[in-house]
Write a protein that binds this DNA or RNA. Sequence first.
DNA 1: TTGTTTTGTGTAATATATTGCGCATATCAT
DNA 2: ATGATATGCGCAATATATTACACAAAACAA
Lengths: 117, 117
Amino acid sequence: MHGVNNIMDKKRVYSNYSKSATLLLGKAIQLGRKERKFTMQELADRAGISRGTLASIEKGDMRCEIGLVFELASLVGIKLFDADENGIAMSIDHINDKIALLPKSIHPTSKVIKDDF
Amino acid sequence: MHGVNNIMDKKRVYSNYSKSATLLLGKAIQLGRKERKFTMQELADRAGISRGTLASIEKGDMRCEIGLVFELASLVGIKLFDADENGIAMSIDHINDKIALLPKSIHPTSKVIKDDF
DNA sequence: TTGTTTTGTGTAATATATTGCGCATATCAT
DNA sequence: ATGATATGCGCAATATATTACACAAAACAA
C-alpha cells in the first residue's frame, strides 16, 4: 500500500533537467514507435515488457528501469549517444582511461586542493 | 527471494547496445564524481539515495531507476543530450509536433503501407 | 608504517516497480 | 455510421529495487 492518500505517494525529488530528459526520451520512443507503425502492444512484446510499462515510459515516468528505456530506444532506432564508428564501447575505454588517472578513493583533505587556480 | 541459485536470477534480456549505453553512463557519472572530488557517500547524499544504489549505477546496473541515473548525471555536470545533435537532441515541443502529424493509434492494416519505397 | 577513510560486497527488511487483468474511450479502416 | 483495434487507466498480486547495516579490504594522508 502507498500513503493514505495520493499526495503522500511521491518520495523522491528530481531536478527539472532530468525530468525534461526523461520526458524527452519517452517522447522520442513514442515518436520512433509510431514512425515504424508499431502498436504499443507490439513494441512491448518485442521488449519483453507489459503494455502498461511502455505507457509509463512514453509518458516520461522517472521510476522505470533504465535498462527498459534504453532497450526501447534501441528497438525504435534511437541513437542514445553520439559515438564514432567504433561505437560506444570505445567511449567506455576512453572513460576508463581517464578514471585510471584519478585517485581511486577520495579523501576529505584532498578536496581543498582542487579549486585553487 | 530470488531463484534457488544465481543462474535463475536474471529475468530480462538486454541488447549489447543498451548494456554499453548504461555502462557508459555509469562510468561517466563515476568520472564526473571523481573529477569533482565527491565521495560516493557525498554524491549519494546529494542525490538522496543510498551508497549501494550509487555503486550499482556506476557499475552500469540495468535495473536502476532512470530518474536516479539522470539525476546523478545532472549532479556531476553531465550533459545528457547535446543541444544540436540529430540523435535525441530534439526539443520536446518539436517531438510533439512530429507526433501530432502521425496517426494517434496504429492499426494493423496500415502496417503494409510503410515499408514500400 | 600507522591510523583514517573510502570502497566493495553481502544480507534481511522495506519500498517500489511491473505485471496481467478488465473496462471505457478514442481512433482508424471500410 | 459501424465494426475492429488501439489506447488510457485503475486494481490486486507479484517481482524487483532500494535501503540500512555490517564487515573486510583497499587507498590515502601524514
